[in-house]
Design a binder for these strands. Structure first.
Lengths: 169, 169
DNA sequence: CCGAACTTTCAGGAAACTTCGAAACTCGAT
DNA sequence: ATCGAGTTTCGAAGTTTCCTGAAAGTTCGG
């Protein structure tokens, strides 16, 4: 296999890893994802460790996290003990997974904080408290609306939704 | 002013800060943002420092970053040397700012990496290289499309866009 | 052009997060 | 039961990111 190609491949993996950290995803996780994305077949933990020069513990933890995100699947080969891992390659599905995860980790907790603070000042009808509630309610309503949009987008089919939205805008 | 209310207010600020770190935004920045969001008037650097118990350097840096994001504005009071800061309170504008920033920091660099890798394997027509290119192109096309959608959404008016999208879905 | 008021920068320490490696655990075959 | 291939957990070490406090820079009135 061409040396150049192997280099580009490796560069892709490391750069994707670097990007990951910009995103708040840890570097190893992003690298494993990139590796599996461009792998021609499923890989075992040991292969991942070897390609990326990482420890077993690290490989194991991050593979599990990727599985939790729904971005990677465990593959069992009949008659073999060892587990193999394969990345989801359908871009739209990846997008849905990431959206779902972000919703879970970002918007839902925010929603909860907002609602709790609104509830806890409900009794207080001083002008300050009213204004505070007003602000927080505006935020909360917006987050809900955005959430609903995300949910519907994620539930729909790629080919239909995006072009249609583009048309509306 | 009611003690309870002050407590909720403080809790909101710290919790919003904690959320921020989940999002890859640093805690102080998120806290300053929350503080200014629920402040009844613009605040000076010293007031921010005092409320949040942070150093001058920290306050200054994070205020600057918030200004770069477009989430906070410098206010000058005529006849006063000191600068005051006020948060953007329109939720839709906040959303647009955050979207713009995420695009700049997340999708644009990703796009560049993908394009570079595609270009660098263009000459290679081995099956592996072709497949690699195919994967990366799918990703790249998708990211572009998503970007276009984001841009248009951000350029539009809140009241019109979201309800309209909801209808289409 | 000086000094006071205010803002910005930066080196180094503190805190948070990531990674390693080894020990503990699981599970199926014998 | 025991072995061994394979997986998971966890404390310590390493790395990155954040925060502080002090020093340097800027700007305005006089």
């Amino acid at each position: 296999m061409s040396q150049d190609f192997q280099n580009v491949r490796r560069r892709f993996i490391t750069q994707w890893g670097a990007l990951g950290s910009q995103w708040g995803i840890n570097r190893t996780m992003a690298m494993i994802h990139a590796l599996l994305l461009v792998a021609e077949r499923e890989l075992s933990t040991d292969e991942v460790m070897e390609e990326l020069n990482i420890s077993r513990g690290n490989a194991n933890t991050n593979l599990r996290d990727l599985i939790d995100w729904g971005l990677v699947q465990r593959m069992v080969r009949p008659g073999e003990r060892r587990e193999y891992f394969a990345a989801e390659k359908d871009v739209w599905k990846i997008f849905c997974m990431v959206a779902r995860e972000r919703k879970r980790r970002e918007t839902e907790p925010a929603q909860k904080v907002l609602e709790a603070c609104i509830r806890d000042t409900e009794m207080d009808d001083s002008p300050q408290a009213r204004e505070f509630r007003r602000e927080l309610t505006a935020l909360s309503d917006f987050v809900s609306l955005a959430n609903t949009v995300m949910e519907k987008v994620a539930a729909a089919e790629q080919s239909r939704v995006l072009p249609r939205i583009l048309k509306v805008l």
